[in-house]
């Protein structure tokens, strides 16, 4: 059994490494504290020893514990904030733009039309019954998230990617698919009666196949809009 699902984006491995780093420190903390608790239970005596922990000599053991936790915290933060910086700020250059419009209860995907702009009249739109977000392999993709009604969240576990789609706002984030395949997409924010059914898929294909897909979509009559 895999603890975390398959990875398919450029920063997924780093996100996972944050998890494993925290798990390492947390496990050490848990084992030590539980051992101390068990030791305290088994250190019982006929008459309890009177000490109140009101001077340094007695309190230092608790203080060392707190210093240990603080050190672990700073190591975790030092590492994870670096990953945060990498995942959150848009890279200097992104190759493609994709728009996601969530509505009750499906995702619609938008690709820029001839004008190169998202959310304009000439956008290429993929909407149900087709519900696959086709993406190019090894290219940085900027994603713009919007919602038509209530708050949804686009969750792509394989990309370690999850952001809310919020009415009245556009949220910009990015990812870079690194493995061909089809991946699960779900809505991770309670969005009404059929939230339980709101799903979609991501399909990562080589760039040439992606271009062909866009070309084919452009040919489709505009009547579907």
């Amino acid at each position: 059994m895999k603890i975390l699902p398959d990875r398919a984006s450029s920063y997924a491995a780093e996100v996972d490494s944050v998890f494993w780093l925290i798990l390492l420190f947390v496990s050490i903390g848990f084992v030590i504290t539980l051992a101390v608790l068990l030791y305290a239970i088994f250190s019982k005596r006929e008459r309890a020893k009177y000490f109140t922990g009101s001077n340094w000599r007695e309190y230092r053991w608790v203080a060392f514990g707190m210093i240990g936790i603080a050190l672990a915290d700073f190591i975790i933060l030092g590492y994870e904030l670096k990953v945060w910086h990498k995942t959150q700020w848009l890279p200097e250059e992104t190759h493609y733009k994709v728009g996601v419009l969530a509505r009750q209860w499906n995702f619609e995907y938008y690709y820029p039309g001839p004008d190169g702009q998202l959310w304009t009249n000439d956008d290429i739109i993929v909407r149900p019954p087709q519900d696959t977000l086709v993406l190019p392999l090894n290219k940085k993709v900027m994603v713009e998230l919007r919602s038509a009604d209530v708050i949804h969240a686009l969750f792509i576990p394989a990309f370690r990617f999850k952001y809310d789609c919020i009415p009245g706002r556009t949220i910009q984030r990015w990812f870079e698919p690194t493995k061909e395949g089809i991946y699960m997409v779900s809505c991770a924010e309670l969005c009404g009666v059929l939230h339980s059914r709101m799903r979609s898929t991501v399909k990562v294909v080589p760039e040439s196949a992606f271009q062909a897909f866009l070309q084919q979509k452009r040919m489709e009559p505009l009547a579907t809009k």
Binding site: L37, Y39, A40, K44, R45, G53, A63, G65, D73
Partner: peptide, 18 residues
């Protein structure tokens, strides 16, 4: 950090008790 202090203090209260 502060809650580690509180939890450890509670455990220290049990240490060498009856």
């Amino acid at each position: 950090v502060p809650f580690a202090g509180v939890i450890l203090s509670l455990i220290a209260t049990m240490f060498q008790g009856k």
